[in-house]
Design a protein around this nucleic acid. Structure first.
Lengths: 199, 199
DNA sequence: ACACACTATCTATAGATATAGTTAGTTGAC
DNA sequence: GTCAACTAACTATATCTATAGATAGTGTGT
């Protein structure tokens, strides 16, 4: 259900085509949301029908054309309303911890690989986000600059600070996961060492 | 795709009906997985057809009957194989951080409510898991005791330690989220305080 | 002229998930 | 005896998501 709002969020900065949005979902926003184009195009059409977006056909080369979507005042209102609505914390679906809870079923080598993969994944994420923050602080982030340019001056600081805050939260989470992974590796080693009943 | 393995994990302890499993998914395993009965029953039938489970009709009262599913050797093998297969880290879908990144769109009071709800949610989780660990250490956890009784003696320590490790990871994560939420509250306060440009 | 990478969009299908409601038997309280 | 709460299972529907592939135009290089 949040795909719609992720799209609105991006479109508050500037009008974009489905293709542009799909690309964003592979990069910048990918930190919190991902969606394939096959989900994006239909959703955009639906949102246009509900007049949250205005579609404009623009030509591209001699024969080509594309559809650019622009957020409407209704779209802005819908986004703002979503932003003012409390989130539902419902589903819990965590394959990593599901596996971790039954790690005694895995070969020690496979168990180590799980933990190492977890560490690697979150190390990679942490690096991405650290870079993102650097981009925000150094004002080299293109998307953010466009956003700030379209933001009333008195709101710019908040806009920037909340984004940094978000990335910092993600970095903190990644670090917690890395630490847990390292703990896991130590635990696996200690449990698979040949007989250490003594204590 | 992991629903199947969550079910297998539970059924390695003892045979259960769909109803039993659905109840577990509302409580004990709910920490990592949730699924409604409308998803569980069809999946059980499917797994029985693939002979990962054996279904046995048992009567209940004078006219009633129910189906109890028992994991088969093939089921155990499938579960073990899953446990030895690396996890895919793919989708990223995080409505909380999506909202956080655009918090300047929310009323300060709504922004505070988001953060407070985040803190409350993870505080509740942390309490649950702390209790779980106490149950594991004190051997008062019924499910675990059954599991340990069905586990070869040399594997018992691993079985216990991995579960504690899993809950500790979830506690650590909850604490990171709580800390982030508190930071968020402070940030909102500082940003919505009437004009503090100086510094 | 052709190959190639890229932009742009759409369709189909399968599977996962959420929400809701239906049917029917059991058990225990009043 | 009948009501309520619980146990047991199923069905329907809608939406969400993933994967794959189809179609077609653009722009660049050779």
């Amino acid at each position: 259900m949040s795909l719609r709002y992720a799209l609105l969020a991006l479109l508050t900065v500037e009008p974009m085509t489905g293709y542009d949005l799909a690309k964003r979902f592979e990069s910048s926003v990918a930190f919190v949301w991902h969606a394939p184009d096959s989900q994006i195009y239909p959703e955009l059409r639906k949102m246009a029908k509900e007049s949250l977006l205005a579609a404009e056909e623009i030509s591209w080369g001699p024969n080509g054309k594309k559809t650019r979507y622009r957020i409407t005042p209704e779209g802005r209102a819908a986004f703002r309303q979503w932003m003012n609505t409390p989130l539902e914390y419902s589903r819990e679906r965590d394959p990593v911890h599901l596996k971790a809870a039954y790690l005694e079923w895995a070969e020690p080598s496979a168990a180590r690989q799980h933990m190492q993969a977890h560490i690697d994944y979150h190390t990679m994420r942490r690096a991405q986000w650290t870079e993102m923050i650097a981009g925000l602080r150094g004002a080299t982030n293109e998307m953010l600059n466009k956003r700030l340019a379209a933001t009333a001056e008195e709101d710019r600081r908040r806009t920037l600070e909340y984004k940094i805050f978000t990335y910092e939260g993600l970095i903190a989470r990644a670090e917690t996961e890395i630490e847990w992974g390292l703990q896991g590796l130590r635990l696996i080693d200690s449990l698979s060492a040949p007989s250490q009943q003594g204590g």
